[in-house]
């Protein structure tokens, strides 16, 4: 087995070229266990030197320098990718201020921007474009003060990109923000849209030194128009992880090496 492919990659189907083409991935995490490392790992996968795939990154949570530092530890230089036109980093930290009162058109404007970038990047043949959002709850806060509908509209439009240009859409969201709600429509809608849901949570059995949490990957794999692809439909996988200095170790429960 290829040593560079870990359990999460296998669960996502990275043993084949561009498995996420036209798919929507939702990463759900909570305060106790952040899921951003999954996002970092997927960034690294998309920007791997073996492919020509491109990434559009909407950063609501952190500045570029943060991702640059993290990805450098994982062995991927974001600045070089930026100059190679494989990474388009959209700094959204200031979106709230620049937007003014007309929030709806703000989201629409953002989408048009993404659409334009997708068209520009899509010139290279056999290139898969991934749109990543870190994270959705901050987009919700930035775009609207009370109504999450505009963000859902935005999400819907991003979903059209997956059909139209075969883009992948990867989003991160925090589940516990909605834990007090009876029916968190926003979160449920995102889960419904997603083909793959990855959930990062603390160990059910409590804190442990050598295990930092567990990941559950649900591959809903909607009925696809491309025949024969994606044998992992309706699969649910569960494994644990340990965050190390420059990488993540994944293992099945009870199989930790340390």
């Amino acid at each position: 087995m290829d040593r560079s492919v870990n359990l999460l990659d296998l669960a996502l189907g990275f043993d084949e070229p561009s498995p996420l083409r036209g798919k929507v991935v939702l990463i759900e995490d909570c305060v106790e266990t952040s899921g951003s490392f999954v996002l970092h790992q997927m960034m690294k996968r998309v920007l791997s030197p073996h492919s020509s795939d491109a990434l559009i990154f909407l950063a609501f949570a952190r500045p570029f320098s943060h991702y640059d530092r993290v990805l450098r530890k994982l062995g991927c230089n974001l600045s070089t990718q930026k100059t190679n036109n494989r990474l388009v980093f959209v700094d959204m930290l200031m979106m709230k201020c620049s937007d003014g009162d007309d929030n709806v058109s703000g989201v629409a404007k953002l989408f048009r921007e993404i659409q334009g970038t997708v068209r520009k990047l899509g010139n290279v043949t056999n290139r898969n474009i991934t749109v990543m959002v870190d994270d959705m709850s901050l987009l919700e806060i930035a775009a609207t003060n009370s109504n999450s509908d505009h963000v859902l509209d935005f999400l819907h439009y991003c979903h059209t990109l997956t059909c139209e240009s075969n883009c992948s859409l990867v989003t991160l969201n925090h589940e516990d923000i909605y834990s007090s709600m009876e029916r968190p429509a926003y979160l449920l809608q995102m889960v419904c849209l997603a083909d793959i849901v990855i959930k990062a949570e603390p160990l059910a059995s409590g804190l442990a030194n050598d295990v930092h949490g567990q990941l559950t990957v649900v591959n809903k794999g909607m009925i696809s128009s491309k025949s024969g692809k994606g044998s992992s439909r309706n699969k649910l996988q569960n494994f644990q992880f340990r965050i190390k200095e420059n990488g993540i170790e994944y293992f099945y429960p009870g199989c930790s090496r340390s």
Binding site: E175, E182, L188, V197, K199, T216, V218, N234, L236
Partner: peptide
């Protein structure tokens, strides 16, 4: 009931589908 629709998704195990 329906309250934990999300958690149920992760509890479905091999019967999903």
């Amino acid at each position: 009931g329906k309250r934990n629709a999300l958690e149920n998704l992760f509890l479905a195990h091999q019967d999903f589908g």
